[in-house]
């Protein structure tokens, strides 16, 4: 690209599906730079057509491999498939090894598939902070399905359900029993359950545990006209992949017209709004407290004051800036 291209000038090229422009705008979204804001606002207006499919599960459950196979399967229906694959950042160096692509290497050079790896960079919930911006960019570039693959999660990272139209939870055989299956958290959020590695002999046990778990519940969080399927897949034999693609398409059809689907889209919008506000607030917090926190920590260490009083003092700068901004906004309105 040579010289610096302003972000708004990338929009038309993103819409034309140009990989270099898509990649560059994603990098700028990820950096949180102010220059990209206007472009992302416009991209958001252009987006809103893609079906976002969240894929989550414990580390090593085979999410990336499944995503690779699934993307290829979904491609046969003609729609372009975008993939956002999140891997963890190091808590020590901030660096990362993003290895999801290795599992998707048989996707080769199909121009209808776009894979972007993202590091969590301190974000919690299993996603990267700019993941939703990246989804918008792929959406605006004409990708009909965007797969959002979380980091390998524990039992409790369930933000993905509020970022996707359809949530797929991947379980691997041999990791737990029927009690594990009725615990709260991750397993509750699935629109579709997948048991991966079904070529293994203990997979049937996991399939049964999940099916029985679903029969115990009232399913009040899910649409009445949707029965959560439990699908066994094998990346080795290809078993279950057609069934999974069909279930994803069917879920989209069922939810796009129903009240439950509307409620889900509202919940996604609310999540996006709150998350964006949270990020803005957090940035401001980091910026306004950087100078004072060392000194206040010293006072806490010497026990000259208590954590609550000092935290209030630390927050004062952030809140003061809030007031300034509010005044600005009000004066502009007036």
């Amino acid at each position: 690209m040579g010289t610096y291209v302003p972000s708004v000038e990338l929009i038309a090229r993103v819409q034309a599906g140009e990989p270099a422009a898509i990649g560059r705008l994603m990098s700028r979204a990820e950096s949180g730079m102010a220059e990209a804001r206007e472009a992302l606002v416009r991209i958001h207006k252009l987006a809103g057509r893609a079906q976002v499919v969240g894929i989550t599960g414990v580390p090593g459950s085979g999410k990336s491999t499944l995503v690779g196979k699934l993307a290829r399967n979904l491609r046969t229906s003609g729609s372009k498939v975008g993939i956002i694959a999140v891997d963890p950042s190091s808590p020590y160096s901030g660096g990362s090894i993003l290895g999801d692509r290795i599992r998707m290497s048989d996707l080769g050079t199909d121009p209808g598939i776009y894979i972007r790896s993202m590091a969590t960079r301190g974000a919690t919930g299993g996603m990267a902070r700019a993941a939703l911006e990246a989804v918008d960019i792929l959406d605006a570039a004409g990708f009909g399905v965007v797969i959002l693959e979380t980091v390998g999660v524990g039992q409790d990272e369930v933000e993905i359900v509020r970022a996707s139209h359809t949530t797929v939870v991947v379980s691997a055989p041999g990791l737990g029993d029927d009690i594990q299956a009725i615990k709260a958290g991750l397993l509750e959020i699935a629109d579709i359950h997948v048991v991966s590695k079904c070529d293994r002999s203990d997979a049937n046990r996991t399939l049964t545990d999940l099916k029985q778990m679903l029969m115990l519940g009232m399913r009040e969080h899910k649409p009445a006209d949707w029965t959560v399927p439990v699908i066994g897949t094998s990346a080795v034999s290809g078993e279950g992949l057609d069934e999974l693609s069909d279930a994803i398409v069917r879920h989209h059809d069922v939810t796009s017209a129903s009240d439950a689907g509307r409620a889900q889209r509202k919940s996604m919008a609310e999540f996006r709004l709150r998350k964006t506000a949270e990020n803005l607030l957090f940035d401001r917090f980091v910026e306004t407290t950087a100078a004072a926190s060392g000194k206040l920590a010293e006072r806490l260490m010497r026990r000259e004051s208590d954590p609550y009083t000092l935290a209030e003092e630390l927050l004062a700068a952030t809140l003061a800036k809030e007031d300034d901004n509010e005044r600005d906004v009000h004066s502009k309105i007036a």
Partner: peptide
């Protein structure tokens, strides 16, 4: 502190460049 994407073995120049462009 860098983000490192590793492609794995036996890639073609086409695959490598496409990956590098998508990953920017």
């Amino acid at each position: 502190g860098m983000d490192v994407i590793y492609t794995g073995l036996h890639r073609s120049p086409e695959e490598v460049v496409i990956a590098a462009v998508q990953e920017d």
